[in-house]
C-alpha cells in the first residue's frame, strides 16, 4: 500500500501532529485486569446475546461493570459474563472449508420439495 493517509478526519488527528510538552510516563506498572465478554437477555423468553466486552478483576466485578456499562436503559433482565480467554472462535480463513458441506444440501430446506397446491396444512 503506497497510499499515505494524511487527511485529518474528525477524531483522527495523527499522533505526530503537534508537540507534547507533558512529560513522558512509563507504562502502567500494575498488571492488567482480564477481559470479559458480556451477554444480555433483553427479556424473558429470549436468548442471551453478545453485547460487548469489558475489563474486571473478578466475576463479581465483571457483573457489576456489565450492569453499569451495558444496561443503563433497561436493556436486560439477565446477564452472563465469561472471561474472554475461555471463548474459542472459528477461523475466518477456514470458513470456506468449514461451512462448505452445508451449501450443497438444499434438500434440508422445506422449499426443496415440490408438492401439489391442493395439499393443505403442510
Amino acid at each position: 500500500m503506497n497510499t499515505a493517509i494524511n487527511k485529518y478526519y474528525y477524531g483522527d488527528i495523527p499522533d505526530g501532529a503537534g508537540d507534547n510538552n507533558s512529560e513522558k510516563k512509563s507504562s502502567t506498572a500494575e498488571s492488567a485486569w482480564p477481559l470479559w465478554e458480556v451477554f444480555i437477555r433483553s427479556k424473558q423468553g429470549l436468548d442471551h446475546k453478545h453485547a460487548g466486552s469489558l475489563h474486571a478483576a473478578d466475576a463479581e466485578m465483571a457483573m457489576e461493570n456489565a450492569r453499569d456499562v451495558y444496561t443503563r436503559r433497561q436493556e436486560g433482565i439477565s446477564l452472563w459474563v465469561v472471561e474472554s480467554k475461555y471463548i474459542h472462535a472459528s477461523n475466518p480463513d477456514d470458513a470456506e472449508m468449514f461451512y462448505e458441506p452445508a451449501s450443497d444440501k438444499v434438500y434440508r430446506h422445506p422449499t426443496f420439495y415440490d408438492l401439489p397446491d391442493e395439499l393443505k396444512h403442510m
Partner: peptide, 19 residues
C-alpha cells in the same frame, strides 16, 4: 492493542483526543 497501552498514551500526551 491493550487498554493499558491506550490509557498510557492518553496520559503521556502521546495520543490525541478531540480538541
Amino acid at each position: 492493542t491493550s487498554r493499558e497501552q491506550m490509557v498510557d498514551d492518553l496520559l503521556s500526551g502521546k495520543a490525541k483526543y478531540s480538541s
